[in-house]
Each structure stands twice: as C-alpha cells, then as structure tokens.
Nucleic acid binder design. Sequence first.
DNA 1: AGCTGTGAACATATTCACAGCC
DNA 2: GGCTGTGAATATGTTCACAGCT
Lengths: 204, 204
Amino acid sequence: MPKATVERLPLYLQCLQAIGDSETTVSSDALANVAGVNSANVRKDLSYLGSHGVRGVGYDRLELCAQLRRALGLTDKWPVVIVGVGNLGSALANYQGFDASGFNVIGLYDADPSKIGARVDGQRIKSMEDLELDIKKHEVQMAILTTPAGAAQEVADMLVSVGILSILNFAPALLKLPDTVKCRQVDLATELQILSYYQASRPT
Amino acid sequence: MPKATVERLPLYLQCLQAIGDSETTVSSDALANVAGVNSANVRKDLSYLGSHGVRGVGYDRLELCAQLRRALGLTDKWPVVIVGVGNLGSALANYQGFDASGFNVIGLYDADPSKIGARVDGQRIKSMEDLELDIKKHEVQMAILTTPAGAAQEVADMLVSVGILSILNFAPALLKLPDTVKCRQVDLATELQILSYYQASRPT
DNA sequence: AGCTGTGAACATATTCACAGCC
DNA sequence: GGCTGTGAATATGTTCACAGCT
C-alpha cells in the first residue's frame, strides 16, 4: 500500500466517526468533503483495502470502518508505554481516545524518583527498571517518548534493546535508530516553522 | 518552493543546530546523513534558497542557518497565542525552544474561569475575552489550539474571525476553516495508527 | 580531489474521465 | 441517476550521474 495512502487511512477512520450513526452508507464524495481530499483519491485509497463499495450507493459505513481498522492492524489493541511523565506525558496519558483508536496504555514511566508512585489518570507512575521488565513481560512493541530532549536518545536506545519496534517521539531531538525501528517525530518547532513559511509568503 | 522541500527546511535547521559550533562548513553529504535524507535531495532543496554553497567545500554553516531562517519567514519573531491550558497547553507553554525557533508566546488563554490568573511558565492565564483583545492588539496571526475536542471548532471560528491566519491544532477534531486559513493537525491517534500499519505488516 | 548545482531518468502520487454496475 | 473502480494523463518528488568550479 502506498505510503501516502497509509497516512490518510486514519483520517478516513476519524471522518467516519465524525459522520456518525446518521448515515448507514457513505459515498466517496461525502468522505472526500469531510476529509478535504479529492474523491477519486478516496476511491483509489479505499480500493487498496479490497473494499467493495456498491455502485450507485457508496460504502457501508460500519463495514468500511472495520476494513480500515483491519488494514491498519487495529484488530487487537496494541499495548503501548508512555515514557516521561511531565506535562506532555500527562496530557497524553489523560487522552481518552486510546481505547477507541486501538491502543492500550499499559504503563507510565519516569526517571525521576520523586514522581514514581504518583497517579496520572488512575495509573501509577513506575520506574525505568519497571519499564524494561514490563516491555519484556507484555511484549510491548510501541512506545511514546515524552522525555526531555537530553534524555531521548538514551531512553530510545534502551527501548530498542528490549524489543520496542515503533517509537512516537515528542521529544525535540533527532533519534539515531536502527532501521528495523520505525519512528515518527512530532515536533512543535517544525510545525510552527512550516506554518511560518506559508504565513510569510502569503499574498498581502 | 515545493511543499516537500518546505517541510524539510525546519529539519535542516534542527540538524545544523545539532551539528553545532564544531564545524564552520557543512557538506550536503554531512547534512544528509544527520537528516536521514539523500544528499542530492538536500542540494536540490538548498538550491531553492538561492544558496551559494562553495564547490569542493560545502555550505557555510551560519550563513546557511540564516538563509533557512529567512526562507521560512523567521526573520522576526512571530507572536503566537496558546488557547486551552490543560496539561497539553501547559506542556507546550513550558517548551523552552520557542524563542530559538522564531516564536514568541504572547499569552495563554482558557475558557475555564477557575484557571484564569494561574501562572504557567511565568505567564498568567487569561480569559477568552482577553484573547480576542490581545490578538487584535498585537496583530497575532498564529494560534496553537490545545482545547478539548468539543470546543475546538467554536474556538477556531472565533480565532479566524479576529484575524488568525495559521492554526496548529492539537485537539483531536477536524476543523472546518476558510481556505484563507492554513492549519496543521497534530493527532496522537493518527500517528499511532500509522505506526500500527507498519508494525502489523512487518515481516516476522 | 572534493563538493555543488542541475538536467535527465525514474518513482510516486493525484486527478481526470469514463466504462460498468446497481 | 448515481456511484464505484480504474486506466490514462498529469503533477510532484526523488535519485542518478556528471559537468563545472575551487
């Protein structure tokens, strides 16, 4: 499946949720409008799912949701860990959508001893030693990294060494990782700077 | 300038910062290695800056930084507002890199009266009324949206009505905006789901 | 010798346009 | 009539490969 398509599938899922129960069937046009995408593009994307939309009608909403979930590998919930429980880690830990999105936060971890034992969204913050043990025990493969920039590489190395294969990195640091590990970077400065470009080059 | 190039410029800037004072000159190869990009791609990207690298030598590090900044419209600091001061908004407000990235957080705002007056990173949380006034007064064009999903659209509409032209949206909600307004969406569920796809389809 | 800048080749992604089916 | 699925056309992006400068 093309990379560009993969990156749009979650959007479609989100749009279908937004459309809600009202419609039992959804056309590529309707989905395209909500998603802000060309409708031919939507159809081509969905055709990779081996989806069978009905000509003259559209796609069955629930079936399409199920197909998107299956394609994204969301049939079972992925266990994930959150490493670094500052404001950002806490914010993510409090996010109520993990379950609906297909994920299960099995633990929160921090290197700061004074934080250990505190509760965030009902979960006890655990130590970095616990992190290693938990990853191995639950065969966790995905981690969310919300440590300070300075600690990110070191923590990432440890995560990789105990079996983590996907990292969602919110720390403003470029990680050097083996190419067996997939990483996505979310960076505030980067996003603002991209907006700045378009802002600055706006016709006035 | 191509969209793909624009989205890489901040990365180059970050890489140059990471390379630091040690080198006075940087080759496209060196930059490519740090950034994880093909070196021809780097050269082509930089050629859009009208950059003058020196054959046989490379690019002058400081000059290149300056050119990247200029191209991204970061010559003056953009004033930005943060709307919604929950954990996420607080986390972003505490980010120490705004200044170095080219931005200046002029205020934090929340709709919850019980939060108003509290301090985050030295700034007093202000009301939504203040938000409108401040945007107009300081001619703010960029906003970071960190409200709950339910409030995002309403707040966005207000921001647009008082002159905001770029929104960085962290709320898990799809905003409907006039196409004069540029928006970038940062979504936890989306990022995890993309990772899930590659995780699930990994050769085992 | 070492590096940039860039045309040409290739690869990926998007959109059009329409046949085919309900 | 309305919508899907998709080949063909177009647009965008990446990489190669090398001439040209220092």
